[in-house]
C-alpha cells in the first residue's frame, strides 16, 4: 500500500506502518553510517550529548558521492544496515523512530523496533542516482572530518522506501522471500 508520510516520524505514523508498505517520506532526515555511529556511541559512553536529538528522528545509513555544482548531493543510495546493528538498539531506546538502509537486521534490532514502536525501511540498493533526485537539500551538521561519513541533515521530498521491519515484529525479507521460494 502506498503511503505519504512526513518526517520526523510521529509515534502514531510509525506505529501505523506495516511491512510491505511503500512509503514516500517528506521532511527532514539525518545521515549516519559506520564511523558516525562509532563516534556517537563513544560520546554516549563518555556521558556526552549527541549532535542530533534522536527523538522521533529518522537516520539514513548513507554516505554520498560528492555533489556536482548546482546539485544538493551526489549519488545517495543506502548502505548495508547490519553494520549498524551494534549501535541501533541503544539509539532506538533514545527515541529514534526510523532507520533507512538495505539488508537484514539482527534480532536485537527487530526487538528494539517492536519495543519502541519504530520502523526499519529499505531503500533500493544501488539506485543512488535516482534517490538523489528526492533529496532537495543537504548540509553537514557534525563530524565534518569524516568526509562522506559525516552526519548530514537532508531535506527530502517523496523519498521512496519500503517498510521491512514494523512495530508488530513483521519482517518483509522473511515473508516476501518465502512467497517466491520454489525449492521443493
Amino acid at each position: 500500500m502506498d503511503k505519504y508520510i512526513s518526517v520526523p516520524l510521529s509515534d502514531e505514523d510509525a506505529r501505523s506502518l506495516r511491512a510491505g508498505d511503500y512509503v514516500y517520506l517528506t521532511g527532514t532526515i539525518y545521515t549516519a553510517r559506520d564511523a558516525a555511529h562509532k563516534r556517537m556511541q563513544e560520546t554516549l559512553e563518555a556521558g556526552g550529548k549527541l549532535p542530533v536529538d534522536m527523538k522521533n528522528n529518522v537516520i539514513y545509513y548513507m554516505g554520498p558521492s560528492p555533489a556536482r555544482e548546482g546539485c544538493p548531493i551526489g549519488s545517495a543510495g543506502p548502505t548495508t544496515a547490519s553494520r549498524m546493528d551494534k549501535y541501533a538498539p541503544g539509539l532506538l531506546d533514545l527515541g529514534l523512530k526510523g532507520m533507512i538502509g538495505k539488508g537484514k537486521r539482527s534480532q536485537a534490532v527487530k526487538d528494539a523496533v517492536v519495543r519502541n514502536g519504530a520502523v526499519y525501511f529499505a531503500a533500493v540498493g544501488g539506485a543512488g542516482a535516482l534517490l538523489s533526485k528526492a533529496i532537495v537539500k543537504s548540509e553537514v551538521i557534525a563530524y565534518d572530518d569524516l568526509g562522506t561519513e559525516a552526519i548530514r541533515r537532508l531535506e527530502v521530498e517523496n523519498f521512496p522506501v519500503i517498510v521491512v521491519n514494523d512495530c508488530q515484529g513483521n519482517d518483509l525479507y522473511e515473508t516476501a522471500i518465502r512467497a517466491y521460494n520454489r525449492e521443493g
Partner: peptide
C-alpha cells in the same frame, strides 16, 4: 527503478551507486 537510475546516471553524470 534501476533502469531509471542508470538513465539518470548517464545523463546527469551522477554515479550509478554512491559506493563507487
Amino acid at each position: 527503478q534501476l533502469q531509471e537510475n542508470r538513465k539518470i546516471a548517464g545523463e546527469d553524470m551522477i554515479p550509478i551507486c554512491q559506493d563507487t
